[in-house]
Design a protein around this nucleic acid. Structure first.
Lengths: 256, 256
DNA sequence: CGCGATTTGTGCGTGTCTTCACAAGCGCTT
DNA sequence: AAGCGCTTGTGAAGACACGCACAAATCGCG
């Protein structure tokens, strides 16, 4: 950082005042660093080197250092990063210093699981309301929350200051749910339904599609199979041998 | 493609013989195209333009055309793409012409939901076995499948020719599960546990972390809040007004 | 007090991905 | 049969991301 400070001047321990402009790829990795840092903190480590942290997060150490440098990080050359300080910095940048309220729409198969998922609560999110369109499910209590009818969605979202909406409905219902979330003032949506949502400018949508992940893996399976099959055209009958895992494939480990 | 064919010669309806080398970014989008195409086919459409398909998949039309051109696609200028043909092409490239067997490890909260998720079966995958380490859960029947103990994982994976392993266990158990999957010959893993897996070369891992998605959204919420707050420093007391959704933010809609 | 070991922060070359813009090709109409 | 409108496929440029490699900075030790 180009932030010189006269040796005697008192340093304010305040977090960075303005939010730096982070590359999207960096933002996507910060939560991973944060998770690794919390693990370290629980084990009593006070400092960590970029090499170590990068290993724990599964990335290149140069990439990690560049990511951290973007948020004006306070590492110490020759020593490493202060774990507690880095946790604070990342949590501040990610906006995790305030607990955000989440509305979950669709308490079917997947929605039920999400409603009970610990990872949300332990990482700064509070599931504040559950919704479903099925009258049979409305009224059901899950984890201490009563499922409300989706007609109340917009009103409740406004009242409860919902920051993030999670859509776990069938695809056919997803767009209407999204519209209601937006009408209720929600500007961030996590969509598990297999469809594309149309939202106004200023609303962020992230999509998670479990089947797509499997299909991507399927492609790589297919590719691996054709790679080991085709070169063997001239090699007659090399038996299947499922034991040798065909090593020496130099570029594996698919990122997100 | 540069594959001229004399007007009278019979065209073999065979798929592309060798698997083209696709950019990873393209592979990640193909399943999305495929879903949109299936929707079109169900509605009776026979052809589709790149513009239309791109809209349905939420991408730029030039990107879509380049993606499809990579797999030597057979579009017709002035007309568009043949829906049925394109479906076949993409399914072939993704390796979906053969149904792949999936092993699901960890039938807790999330695992239960995944075991019952329709999207797997309807898109070419068969959940062939369930596993858990908890003796209480072993023996339970879910969707017609009996949960087996994780000690049997390697053996069953080999016997049943499992192609893909899905890990839905706590983070602490994930690495050991991955090791057993690899020992059983599995070379593709979908990891829902919040941790980094170490696997040999030739094994592909994709990670899905629900909490990370929320944290990324949280960052954008934070950024939006600070963008609308900071410029108002000189503007005294502009009230909260939760109604105006702060439009005119030209670059939204976050990709994966 | 100085030196060497260590680790951060970053400039720069490289490769990938995205997007624009347009030529080439196809079918329909006249 | 010729022309016209429409759509694909792709060359090229720009934007972005990655990773190497090294200078700068800090600590500990002699």
């Amino acid at each position: 950082m180009s932030q010189h400070r006269p040796p005697g001047a008192p340093e304010r321990p305040v977090a960075v005042p303005a939010l730096p402009d982070l590359p999207e790829a960096t933002v996507a990795r910060l939560p991973e660093y944060l998770r690794a840092l919390h693990n370290l903190a629980e084990n009593g480590h006070e400092t960590v080197s970029s090499e170590w942290l990068a290993g724990a997060a599964g990335v290149n150490s140069a990439k990690l250092r560049k990511d951290l440098s973007h948020l004006g990080s306070y590492g110490t050359r020759g020593v490493g990063y202060d774990v507690a300080l880095l946790i604070d910095q990342i949590e501040y940048v990610l906006g995790l210093t305030q607990r955000r309220s989440v509305a979950l729409v669709g308490v079917g198969n997947l929605g039920h699981a999400l409603a009970g998922y610990d990872g949300f609560a332990t990482r700064g999110f509070r599931i504040a309301a559950l919704f479903d369109a099925d009258p049979v499910r409305v009224g059901e209590e899950i984890n201490g929350l009563v499922v409300r009818h989706v007609d109340e969605l917009s009103r409740v979202a406004t009242e409860e200051s919902i920051a993030i909406g999670v859509i776990a409905t069938p695809a056919a219902a997803a767009q209407r749910v999204a519209d209601r979330l937006v009408a209720g003032g929600v500007t961030s949506i996590l969509n598990f339904a297999p469809c594309v949502l149309t939202v106004p400018d200023g609303v962020d949508v992230r999509k998670v599609d479990l089947a797509i992940e499997l299909q991507i893996l399927s492609f790589h399976e297919h590719r691996k199979a054709s790679r080991t099959a085709l070169p063997a055209v001239g090699e007659a009958a090399l038996p299947p041998l499922p034991g040798s895992l065909a090593a020496t494939n130099p570029q594996e480990a698919i990122g997100t």
